[in-house]
């Protein structure tokens, strides 16, 4: 699962491991992230995502393997790594009783910025994220989407090459989410690399490539399209019908049906197109319920996740 460990790589991870006592939180993880790439790092709670991020941000030393971030070895020079990266999570990035400006001032100090240089950076960032009118508002009284943009400004103060976004959009309304994404993408176009974790598979679809962690190991890695083709091959259909229970009883035994799961008012069916055509599926469904509606539905990363983590259970 090596990946693109090229000379221009922003992140190179080789055989990375981290043991806590007798527990291996991260085991033999290897991947590369190219400059300007949006890389998604997914996994269940406890799968090793946070441990990996802490290592890559220079906050925790690995117990095995190596990681280079912006060309710097995280074990040899964790402070150097911290200067080159920005980190943002929805939860911990802001002091709620400080204003936007005070927060940025504080973070700037932490990065060794001060005086006129810091004031200019703050002006530029507040404009970039569109918070000019909210500079002097306590962050706790800002709506979630605006807090998120303030936190992004904090993570960008020292102009990092690599941005770690740890579940950055939890609970934010869709309009704010799109605005946030546009801000991040503007940076990506300027060559910034993004390392993103999320529990939400529609967000993972944004990523150029996605790595999926299971029990401390990198279980699979690829573009969203590659992962779907690799783990949930076949064609997906949405089936809607009145006699759901009868259909759900019939479908799993039908030759060519790979999976059938309830979904909304109907269910989703995955078939092997070589063995069962759309017409064949529709005919069998209508044999049970004449009113059954069948329409094509694409695979999702949820399908991939379930297949890889739980072996297709559910």
């Amino acid at each position: 699962m090596g990946g693109a460990a090229t000379a221009g790589a922003a992140i190179v991870v080789e055989g990375l491991g981290r043991r806590f006592g007798s527990f291996d939180a991260v085991r033999e993880v290897s991947f590369g992230v190219g400059r300007g790439e949006i890389f998604g790092y997914l996994g269940a709670n406890g799968a090793g995502k946070s441990t990996t991020i802490r290592i890559l941000c220079g906050l925790l030393a690995p117990t095995a393997g190596r990681a280079r971030v912006a060309g710097i070895d995280v074990r040899a020079d964790p402070e150097g790594v911290k200067r080159r990266i920005g980190y943002m999570s929805q939860k911990f990035s802001l002091y709620p009783d400080l204003t936007v400006e005070e927060n940025l001032d504080f973070f700037g100090g932490a990065y060794g910025l001060s005086g006129k240089a810091l004031a200019q950076r703050i002006d530029a960032l507040v404009a970039e994220v569109g918070l000019e009118a909210q500079r002097r508002v306590q962050t706790r009284s800002l709506p979630g989407g605006w807090q998120q943009r303030a936190a992004l400004a904090g993570a960008l103060l020292h102009d990092p090459e690599i941005l770690f976004l740890d579940e950055p959009t939890a609970g934010v309304d869709p309009a704010s989410r799109r605005e946030f994404l546009a801000l991040v993408r503007r940076r990506v176009r300027r060559g910034v690399t993004v390392f993103l974790t999320t529990h939400y598979m529609d967000e993972a679809e944004y990523c150029g490539r996605v790595g999926l962690m299971v029990d401390g190991r990198l279980a699979t890695l690829g573009t969203p399209a590659e992962l779907k083709a690799r783990h949930v091959p076949g064609a997906f259909f949405a089936v809607r019908a009145g006699r759901r229970a009868d259909l759900l009883a019939m479908l799993p035994g039908l030759d060519g049906v790979l999976a059938a799961n309830p979904y909304g008012a109907g269910f989703r069916v995955r078939v092997d197109p070589a063995r069962l055509s759309v017409e064949g599926l529709a005919a069998r469904c209508r044999g049970v319920d004449a009113g059954a509606e069948i329409e094509p539905a694409g695979a999702t990363l949820d399908d991939v996740f379930l297949q890889v983590v739980a072996g297709g259970r559910a």
């Binding site: 997914l42 996994g43 269940a44 709670n45 799968a47 939890a170 609970g171 934010v172 309304d173 529990h199 598979m201 229970a245 799961n261 309830p262 949820d302 996740f305 379930l306 983590v309 739980a310 559910a314």
Partner: peptide
């Protein structure tokens, strides 16, 4: 804040309950 596998588990449970006649209202952002 629930990971995807547990999330899918929860939905699967809910489908089971409504199939038995329970009414479920679920809020989500």
């Amino acid at each position: 804040g629930v990971d995807p596998v547990s999330r899918l588990d929860l939905w699967e449970l809910l489908y089971g309950f409504v199939a038995e006649g329970m009414s479920v209202v679920v809020s989500t952002p």
